[in-house]
Write a protein that binds this DNA or RNA. Structure first.
Lengths: 356, 356
DNA sequence: CACTATTATGTGATCGATAACATGAGGGCG
DNA sequence: CGCCCTCATGTTATCGATCACATAATAGTG
């Protein structure tokens, strides 16, 4: 079978509370109390313990502690293992917030699909070392319920769905702004390249797109589903080009926009002279592309941090039920990839043509 | 002070070996042995245990196990917290390999600088739950030695330095190929945009560049140091443009190349007609840029996996000292951003180029 | 000053697993 | 048949911390 784990290196064996206690001339429990709340000790005792700890370079054994308390200082972050398109800045925001609250955040990739993945999820949670989990990966309803029997689980981005249920849309304002921008530029026909629909963010952006297009009185020339990659954005744009003609594309993230721009380029269509393209996320590179990308800037760190706060609230026994997920500092960033709609007569040749 | 961690949810308390043992009518130790090596048990006993485990949905408490064995099934991956330029594919390669060997890989961001960071590193390792660490972040010599007193620590990419010490350069062949490619296109003057020099990969690429340029008989028009971002690539290219003129830029990664191309574009220089630009890493988007990027493809997953193998070897008590880090499936990918050197007379305005 | 209320500290049990040692059943051999 | 040896299984100790309770020390009150 699998080989067992290697034993820890024995060279620099860490001191225990018993050794500290002996050196300080107190009981082990006093040392334990020192760590829990030193104000409960007499100043003289406290100082003896402190000195002993320093001398032995004592650090508590967290494994032993959590065996006893069951409480654990570890939280779990589930990230997509396979997709390199996961914004790691969300993770770092979440990690910072977790650490500030005294938790350590462990990142585990959740791969696979279906029952196999469910099984993996169960195994991870059953090990028991985690106090809660924050998933950046979509989790199906039944799986989520099963997981939540063990520990609180928050799925980042799911509030998007809830918001939509309440008639509000969390990404709404920026998306409306982007569509309004397109409309103001004189465009009438627009298409969408959507992300994988099991992602709340992708669902949300698609919904926002549809609503905003309707509100602005534009014509929806369809949407194509893609994964989050530039390659699939390329394919999706090509697919859209076989349908009704349009003069603007709204892509669900910047990579998709990059792929779309290239697809247009390869067909001889200029961006933005013939077709405008807007992205979403404002990747650090997007300002330097040619053409630079009009996109929606997201404060991904704040978003990760906020998701973590939701989890932290859920961890507290009497935690308040819903931490209002306020706006996330999104804003429209106008750059070169969006421009005035082409004058119909001038571009007739380019748009109506379908070539292999 | 900091609030303690929350207690674990008690709803679905997990079964222990004692409960399994009682249900199966055996001793708890027999259950333990079943997990360690079921072939040591009589078939009948083994089956009783198996049934009891299934009925109680038993899963071992890893915390308790590792308290007793000291051995721990957890490995640590240190990643740069702040830099979004860390290739997460390396991480996923490492994680896969770790899991195959029966380890769980926990990812922790190592941020900050100087003594503060050293302290953070010490605290992470002292907690004691890790059997070993794989760092994707550069660690200074003294810090590394201190860390290695506790557990084996492997710094990914450091073998680059060792290789250079041995007169070999691990990235060598591909870099030589890229410079040869530039030379074959008729370029004579080339410049380099380097990554942060505390990163082994950045040092290595710079060294490789210098050697290859010399071997190919090209003229080195200098190198500018940058962080890994497109923004700093933009600034570095502008800085290089104030120096001796050149017709090719070799950037240490794709983002830097993107920034450089944009800087050239903003100065009215065409890529590749006036200046060729090559990158390194072959990001998934690089094929879709305009112009698409000539770059060095890296099998980042394999590289992460190989680093993990090094660590796994170091974990074994009698582990062989050096796991030969073979070639990593690098290859030159030729795309649009590199092309024939401009004919001196034709480009006089942009580049006051003279034959050497 | 005696006597209780409070606070500080010590003692033993415990979390859930494995390690070390003890014991019992069965088999081989003289 | 009895002795010893092996193999399967049971019993008790242990990892390093906290918890629950007991006890010693101090403070407060009439």
């Amino acid at each position: 079978m699998t080989e067992g784990p290697a034993p820890a290196r024995t060279s620099a064996r860490a001191a225990t509370i018993y050794e500290v206690a002996r050196l300080a001339g107190v009981s082990h429990q006093t040392v334990s109390r020192y760590m829990a709340d030193r104000s409960k000790l007499r100043a003289a005792t406290s100082e003896k313990v402190e000195r002993a700890m320093a001398e032995l370079k004592y650090t508590p054994n967290l494994t032993a502690r959590s065996l006893r308390t069951k409480g654990t200082y570890r939280l779990l972050a589930l990230v997509p293992g396979s997709s390199p398109y996961f914004p790691s800045r969300m993770l770092s925001g979440a990690a910072t917030t977790a650490q500030a609250a005294g938790y350590q955040l462990d990142v585990v990739a959740l791969e696979g699909t279906g029952p196999e993945r469910t099984e993996r999820l169960r195994r991870i949670l059953d090990g028991g070392p985690f106090a809660g989990a924050l998933s950046f990966v979509p989790i199906s309803g039944p799986d989520l319920l099963q997981a939540q029997e063990r520990i609180p689980v928050v799925v980042a981005g799911d509030y998007d769905d809830q918001m939509r249920g309440q008639g509000r849309i969390s990404d709404g304002s920026a998306a409306r702004a982007i569509v309004a921008h397109i409309a103001a530029l004189g465009h009438h026909r627009i298409a969408h390249i959507a992300g994988p629909q099991e992602w709340p963010a992708a669902r949300n952006r698609l919904a926002v797109y549809r609503r905003a297009v309707q509100e602005a009185g534009l014509e929806d020339c369809g949407s194509a589903e893609a994964d989050w990659s530039a390659a699939s954005g390329y394919a999706a744009a090509n697919a859209l080009l076989t349908g009704p003609s349009f003069t603007a594309i709204f892509a669900a993230n910047d990579q998709l926009a990059i792929g779309a721009i290239r697809a247009l380029h390869d067909r001889g269509l200029r961006v933005p002279a013939d077709v405008s393209v807007v992205g979403w996320d404002d990747h650090p590179e997007s300002a330097f592309l040619i053409p630079s990308l009009t996109t929606v800037h997201m404060d991904l760190e704040a978003q990760g941090s906020r998701s973590m706060e939701q989890l932290l609230v859920a961890l507290k026994p009497g935690g308040t039920p819903l931490p209002e997920p306020g706006p996330t500092g999104m804003r429209l960033v106008l750059r070169e990839s969006s421009g005035a709609a082409p004058i119909p007569a001038a571009t007739g040749a380019g748009q109506t043509s379908l070539e292999p």
